[in-house]
Amino acid sequence: MGPRRVIAVRHGESEANVAYRRAGDRPLVYERGDDEVTLSDLGREQARALGVMLAALPPDEAPEVVWCSPYRRALDTWAVAREAWGVAPPLTVDGRLRDREWGELAPYNEAAIGERFPEELARWRAQGEYLYRPPGGESFGDVAVRLRGVWGDLRERADGRRVLIVAHDAVVLVLRHVIAETPDSELAGLAVFAPVLNASVSTWGARDGRLSLLGFNAVGHL
Rank of each mutant, 00 (worst) to 15 (best):
D142F: 04
A62N: 03
A106R: 15
Y132T: 02
E138N: 09
T92V: 13
A79H: 12
G95A: 15
V143H: 10
G86T: 05
P90K: 08
W151H: 12
E120I: 06
E115N: 03
P63M: 04
A79S: 14
R148V: 02
V163A: 11
Y71H: 10
P107D: 06
V87A: 11
Y130S: 02
L121D: 01
P90Q: 10
V65I: 15
Y71F: 15
A167P: 03
L105M: 13
A126G: 04
A74W: 00
V166G: 05
E129Y: 03
A106Q: 15
W78Q: 05
V150H: 11
C68V: 09
W124S: 12
A126T: 02
W151P: 05
A74T: 06
V65F: 07
P107Y: 11
F140W: 09
G152D: 12
I113D: 09
A112M: 06
R162G: 10
G136S: 11
E119F: 00
G141V: 15
A167F: 01
N109Y: 06
E120N: 10
L57F: 10
G103F: 09
A126Y: 00
D94S: 04
G103A: 11
D94G: 03
F117E: 06
T77N: 01
A74Q: 03
F140S: 03
L131D: 15
E104I: 10
L91I: 04
R82K: 14
E129L: 08
E138S: 10
D76M: 09
A88S: 15
G136A: 12
V80A: 09
R73P: 11
Y130D: 02
G103W: 12
W67T: 00
E120W: 14
I113A: 08
D153K: 10
P135N: 14
G103C: 13
D142S: 07
R125N: 09
P59T: 13
A167S: 14
V143T: 14
E156A: 14
P107H: 13
P135R: 14
P135T: 12
L121H: 03
L147Y: 10
R162N: 10
Y71R: 03
F117M: 07
G103I: 10
R161H: 06
E120C: 09
R155C: 15
D60I: 00
E138M: 11
R116E: 01
